[in-house]
């Protein structure tokens, strides 16, 4: 198992993304975070806290499960248990910062965008990902990327571990 990012790398990446967001998402009072279950949620929380520290604003955030919007529900062996989507703020006219751990085919993000539109009409949507592993099947790109790696074959697995839910922290290729 190869290490792609260490705990410290992740921490530096989060800092860099935070400054990128504060610089590019104007005005900051319109920012709101949506983290995709499960690990996007935790990365979104870290970024949100730091953006709040810098801007001295309270920034709304939510959690999204995209299962019901997947394009392969008919093809799955079994239907996964749907986890709750919790968005307790009005997304109308917000700059939505969508956060996920790994960007691959782009299908998860397509599903998330469709779901966001069912909640209302945001001013814009920006995408943050920790790892871009290539392999896109849809025309979707991230606005803030932690680390872009050379496209790896589909049977390789990128494993993101975060201290909030895993025993350790880092990004690994297995």
């Amino acid at each position: 198992m190869n290490s792609i990012l260490s705990k410290n790398d992740i921490s530096r990446i989060v800092d860099r993304i935070v400054y990128g967001i504060v610089e590019k998402c104007i005005p900051p009072k319109e920012i709101a975070f949506i983290g995709l279950r499960t690990r996007g949620e935790h990365i979104a929380n870290r970024i949100k806290k730091k953006v709040e520290d810098i801007t001295s604003l309270q920034i709304p955030s939510g959690i999204m499960d995209i299962t019901l919007y997947r394009d392969d529900l008919n093809k799955l062996e079994s239907n996964p248990v749907v986890k709750e989507t919790l968005i307790n703020f009005d997304i109308h006219n917000k700059i939505i910062i969508l956060v996920d751990d790994v960007l691959n085919t782009g299908r998860t993000i397509r599903a998330a965008l469709d779901q966001i539109m069912d909640f209302g009409r945001p001013k814009s949507v920006k995408l943050v990902v920790l790892i871009d592993r290539g392999g896109r099947e849809l025309p979707i790109q991230a606005d803030f990327t932690g680390k872009k790696i050379d496209p790896v074959s589909e049977n390789k697995k990128i494993e993101v571990r975060l201290i909030e839910i895993d025993n350790d922290e880092g990004v690994f290729l297995s």
Partner: peptide, 17 residues
């Protein structure tokens, strides 16, 4: 069912599943 109940609070109370 708990997750589905949340859908009732949305603007669009419908999912494409």
């Amino acid at each position: 069912a708990k997750s589905f109940k949340e859908i009732f609070t949305r603007d669009v109370k419908k999912v494409p599943a």
